[in-house]
Design a protein around this nucleic acid. Structure first.
Lengths: 233, 233
DNA sequence: TCATGAACTTTACGGCGTAAGCCTTACACC
DNA sequence: GGTGTAAGGCTTACGCCGTAAAGTTCATGA
C-alpha cells in the first residue's frame, strides 16, 4: 500500500505528434496533466473530470494518461499537490510567528475561493506525500516558534485547520448561489413567518460580509492562542 | 428549479409482491429507500452507492427507485435528511442556552463518527428543505436566547459550524486508518530526521486523544461566546 | 543495424445514471 | 360487478465512465 514512487518517467526529447490536428501542446508530463485536470475542475466541477474529457483537452487519448498516473485516484492526488503549492503565502518570513500562522490560514481560505470545486479534495483525500509533510513541518515550526509544545500545537492545529476547511466549504456553498446576493435560497424561499430567525440572520451571510465573518473566527482563535502563548514566556 | 414537491405518493395498502424470491420486505417508501441507502453508504462508502446496488439490496430493480426519487441527487438529499434527524441531541431543553448549543454541536461530531462515509454530504450539498430550515431555526433560537443579535449569531454560527464540520472530516480521516493507532501513516512512513516536528506531533493525534482535542476547540470558542454574552447583559 | 522500451492508441469489458415504454394490480366510481 | 385509472414495479436501451490488455510508433543506446 506504500505507493512505490512510480519510476520517474525519464525525460526524453519531445516526440513528433502524428495525429492530424492533435498537436495541442508539448509532450505529456505529470505536471501538465495535473494542471489541465485542475483547469477542467475549476471550469466545470469535480464530477466533470473524466479521463476521456481530460485526454481530449490535452489532445490525446484517455489511456495516454495512464502512462503518467496509475489511476484516477493518483491523478487527483496530483491535483491536490498543485493546491498544496498555493497553501502558503508567498511573503514568507515577516512578522511574528502568530502573524505568519494567520497569513498561512488566510491563504488556505484564498484557495477555497480560487478553486471552489477542487477545494473539497483537501479535507477529503489522505495526503502523505513528501511535499505535504514538508508543508506540515513548516506549519508546525510556526507553532513551535510561537511557543507551543506538541500537545498544544496539535490542539490549535486541529482547531484552526478544522475551522478554515469547514468555513471554506460553507463559503463555497454561499458563493455558488449568486454573485452578490444572499448565500442560499433561504431568503427567496423561506417563509418569514415560519422561520423568523433564519430570515433575520440570512442577510448577514451575504457575500459582501464573508470576509469579515471569516476574520472574526480567526480573531477568536488567535486571541486564545496569544493568550496561551503569553502564559508561558 | 424550485423542487415541485413531488405529488405525495398517496398511501396505498401494501401490494403483494409477485416475483419469485423477491419478497425482501414491505413496499418501497422514500423512507425505506433512504434508510437502505444510508446503510449501504455506512457499510461500503459513498461511492459504492449505486441505484442498481441499492435496488438489489431492497429486492427490487434499480428503476423502481425512480418512482420515489426523481434522480440520485434527490436520493442523496433523502439520506441527508436522515442525518439531519441525528443532528440534535435527544435531551432537549435542559441547561443554559450555551450549554445546549454546545451539546448540539457535540451531536454533530457524533454523527461524523457514526456515519463517517455519509458525513461528507453535510457540508457538501445545498440543503434548504423544510426540515433543514426548522433545524436552523431552533439553532438560531439558542443563539438568540444566549443574547446574540443577528450579526453575532451569524459570526459565531459560522465559526462553530465550520469548526465542527472541518474537524469532523479530519477526524474521519484519522479514524479511518487504524482502530487505536496513529491517525495517519505519518508515523509509519515519515522520516524523523526530515520531519522532526511532524514526528513529535503525530502521536498527539492518536484516536484516544481525539475527544479531548475536539473539546479543547469547543472550549476556546465557547469561552469567547460566554465572554461576548456577558458583555451585553 | 537493430533490439529496446517509452509514449501513445485501439479495443473491449463491466458498471454507471436514467429515458422510455410495458405490465400488473388495487382502488374509485358507475 | 365491471371497468378506467394510475401507482408501483419491470425491461430495454443509450451514452457515459474507469481501466485491463494488447497493439503501434519511434528515438535511443549497444
Amino acid at each position: 500500500m506504500a505507493k512505490p514512487a512510480r519510476p520517474p518517467p525519464r525525460r526524453r526529447p519531445p516526440r513528433k505528434r502524428s495525429g492530424a490536428g492533435a498537436a495541442r501542446g508539448a509532450t505529456l508530463t505529470r505536471r501538465r496533466i495535473a494542471e489541465a485536470a485542475l483547469a477542467l475542475i475549476d471550469g466545470a466541477g469535480l464530477e466533470q473530470l473524466s479521463m476521456r474529457r481530460l485526454g481530449a483537452r490535452l489532445g490525446v487519448e484517455a489511456m495516454a494518461i495512464y502512462h503518467h498516473f496509475r489511476n484516477k485516484a493518483e491523478l487527483l492526488d496530483g491535483v491536490l499537490e498543485l493546491l498544496l503549492e498555493e497553501l502558503e503565502p508567498p511573503t514568507g518570513a515577516r512578522g511574528t510567528p502568530l502573524e505568519r500562522l494567520r497569513r498561512t490560514f488566510e491563504a488556505t481560505r484564498a484557495v477555497a475561493i480560487r478553486h471552489p470545486h477542487a477545494f473539497l479534495l483537501l479535507p477529503t483525500r489522505r495526503f502523505n506525500t513528501d511535499r505535504a509533510l514538508e508543508y506540515y513541518e513548516r506549519l508546525l515550526a510556526l507553532f513551535r516558534e510561537a511557543g507551543f509544545d506538541a500537545k498544544l500545537s496539535a490542539r490549535f492545529f486541529r482547531l484552526l485547520a478544522g475551522y478554515v476547511t469547514g468555513a471554506g466549504l460553507a463559503e463555497i456553498g454561499s458563493r455558488a448561489q449568486q454573485r452578490d446576493a444572499t448565500p442560499s435560497r433561504l431568503e427567496r424561499f423561506s417563509d418569514p413567518k415560519r422561520f423568523p430567525l433564519v430570515t433575520s440572520v440570512a442577510p448577514e451571510l451575504r457575500v459582501a460580509n464573508l470576509d469579515a465573518i471569516f476574520q472574526f473566527g480567526l480573531d477568536v482563535i488567535f486571541a486564545a492562542m496569544a493568550d496561551e502563548a503569553g502564559r508561558r514566556p
